[in-house]
């Protein structure tokens, strides 16, 4: 294994985040904090508690998950798309590195950045709303799994995209609606039965539900099912990446 190559890619990406810290870290953290202030501290007091949890505290896991999910996709897709766009991909393709090492470097760095964003938001939320974490291990595990899984999805999008418009298309037209309808701001149990069933087709529901369970012990979907769905999504992403590498799709002619 070319561990130095993995380290080089990883450090390169982390340095890029340091160089653009305002855009990479501060901006998503600030946007999410504004939600805490508006929906938690300002409006939240006028909204009834959900399943015994104050509204301000209820939305925290969903907001963290929503931001981490969006950032995972965005960071990983840009990381691999930009070398394709600028042409510097030639160096990766001609280097003595396996595709698995390339993915480990890029996805690892993007996941660390997304995880950092999630943890900063979590730490900040304590200042605005009362939070408790019943299952800290599972909270970190779900956060980590989400980062890895959606960074893999972002990597796939970055390989697939043939322009900046395509790069933004899936996050904006698919991921954003799914994450807003994924139960971040409400429990899907509050929906009519038909829409509850429709919501179960949305993978974000499982992420938010499991993550919220790790905080307050309540979930829209059984935790085991959520875990299985996340792992299945992870496996599908890995399989797609394996296929990309085997065929050289959009990478090697």
């Amino acid at each position: 294994m070319n561990h130095r190559a993995i380290g080089a890619i990883f450090n390169f990406e982390i340095n890029r985040a340091r160089r653009t810290i305002g855009q990479s870290i501060i901006s998503p953290v600030l946007s999410t904090i504004l939600y805490f202030i508006v929906f938690g501290a300002a409006i939240g007091g006028r909204i009834d508690a959900i399943e015994g949890v104050s509204y301000g505290a209820f939305i925290v896991p969903g907001l963290i998950m929503q931001t981490v999910l969006a950032q995972s996709i965005s960071l990983a897709s840009f990381a691999i798309y930009f070398p394709r766009f600028s042409g510097t991909i030639y160096e990766l393709l001609s280097a003595p590195v396996s595709f698995a090492e390339v993915v480990t470097g890029y996805v690892g760095a993007a996941a660390v950045k997304a995880l950092t964003i999630g943890l900063i938001i979590l730490a900040t939320s304590f200042f605005f709303v009362p939070i408790e974490i019943l299952h800290p291990f599972w909270m970190l595990a779900f956060l980590f799994l989400t980062c890895i899984t959606f960074c893999l999805l972002g990597f796939i999008i970055g390989i697939w995209a043939d322009g900046f418009e395509q790069l933004q298309m899936i996050p904006l037209l698919v991921i954003t609606p799914l994450s807003f309808l994924g139960g971040s701001f409400y429990s899907i149990k509050m929906l009519p039965e038909f829409w509850q069933n429709v919501s179960l087709l949305n993978p974000v529901v499982y992420l938010v539900s499991a993550f919220r369970w790790s905080f307050y012990g309540t979930a829209d979907v059984a935790v085991g099912i959520s875990l299985a769905v996340i792992l299945a999504f992870l496996c599908i992403s890995l399989a797609v990446i394996a296929w990309i590498f085997k065929t050289g799709y959009r990478l090697r002619n």
């Binding site: 070319n2 190559a5 080089a8 390169f12 890029r16 600028s86 030639y90 160096e91 003595p96 590195v97």
Partner: peptide
């Protein structure tokens, strides 16, 4: 095709690492 926002030192060091050299 260069990393426009990187410095020569960093990009050359990156290339060396990518090729597995200490």
């Amino acid at each position: 095709t260069t990393d426009a926002f990187e410095t020569p030192w960093n990009t050359v060091a990156f290339s060396r690492g990518l090729f597995g050299k200490p």
